[in-house]
Design a protein around this nucleic acid. Structure first.
Lengths: 183, 183
DNA sequence: CGAAGATCATCTGTGTGACAGACGATATCA
DNA sequence: TGATATCGTCTGTCACACAGATGATCTTCG
């Protein structure tokens, strides 16, 4: 960030209000970082609002999504898929079971494993949240004229694709997400 | 923090939720979240590498940057600027003092306050890291043809600006960053 | 078949990091 | 002068991720 104001300006009395910071901020090469982070942050805020009903925030949403769409055979594989520690997955699922969104079923083929299946209620909730999330994403780009939004999405997607070519896409999201909600 | 766009009232934190990921599987609106997060994640990785010499990674980098460029009058204002808790700032600065990058100087005008000033070594280090970070950002967009990069930067910046109009830009970055590197 | 080892989910302990609150020192205001 | 606010620090607490051990079960191979 850093802005043009400079050191000598330190004259000002300490009593000054913590200045509200003006949004300009122009430092070479910094705009990219800042914009990326700011946008993601805003996204996080919006999506958080959209999923306020779900335990464990974004994390939980992801889990539910994967459970519904991919139905991984074991809890461990589910965790691996999202880059979450297996022990964490345990109490994460606990919570969701408690809320009635998913169930643990003994896999008859392998009695060590529990298959995590979404309940009807879980599915409904997911569908509902999906809609809200989509809306949130649209809101996120509200500052751009419609035709630029598409262009932006496209460029963003290509950039991301290029940047993560050889990377594991699942863990990526999981890790980044974890933190964002951190606060 | 205030959220500009809608996102009304989100007192409780507990949810977030991107649409993660699996590579295939096309879900409407899916790409945006994933791409944003993935790109930021990649950025985080690169920048983390670029700032490996600095304590506290990118957090420390931000602090050093602000110290050098803005020279905030007090430790508290520095913390506020970056959205970091004041008590956290204490040991964060401790570390940097220990490394010889900054110094705490009693402000003669207000003996309660310590002015944080960068040492020559700190400035050199910052300049050095700045270069590396700029390079990292360039790498980040390597997947885009050169002319698209500019276009992308522009769109990204405008989108971010629109999304965070009335928001405090500093805290934004700090918080998001914290989280992302979380891991 | 049966023993050894792998795998699954869970439980327990540990470490890290953020934050609230209290504190002494100082500044400011009435 | 006294009351109140601010600055930086310190202490205690809390949440959370992770490593390791545990009991149950499957698999492999002699």
């Amino acid at each position: 960030m850093s802005m043009s104001t400079r050191a000598d300006a330190v004259r000002k009395s300490a009593a000054d209000a913590p200045r509200p910071s003006e949004p300009r901020v122009a430092v070479p090469g910094l705009g990219l970082s800042w914009s990326l982070v700011a946008l993601l942050r805003e996204w996080s805020t919006l999506v958080e609002a959209a999923t306020a009903d779900l335990p464990h925030g974004m994390r939980g949403y992801q889990v539910l999504r994967v459970v519904v769409h991919d139905a991984p055979p074991t809890q461990a594989s589910l965790a691996a898929r999202l880059g979450i520690d297996r022990t964490v997955m345990t109490y994460l699922i606990d919570k969701y079971v408690e809320c009635g969104f998913v169930e643990r079923q003994q896999d008859p083929a392998d009695r060590r494993a529990r298959r995590i299946v979404a309940t009807t209620r879980g599915r409904e909730m997911l569908a509902d949240v999906d809609v809200r999330v989509a809306g949130a994403e649209e809101d996120l780009l509200a500052g751009l004229p419609p035709e630029d939004r598409m262009r932006f999405r496209d460029l963003l997607e290509r950039a991301a694709q290029g940047a993560t070519e050889d990377e594991d896409p699942c863990g990526v999201v999981a890790r980044a997400v974890t933190s964002v909600e951190g606060r």
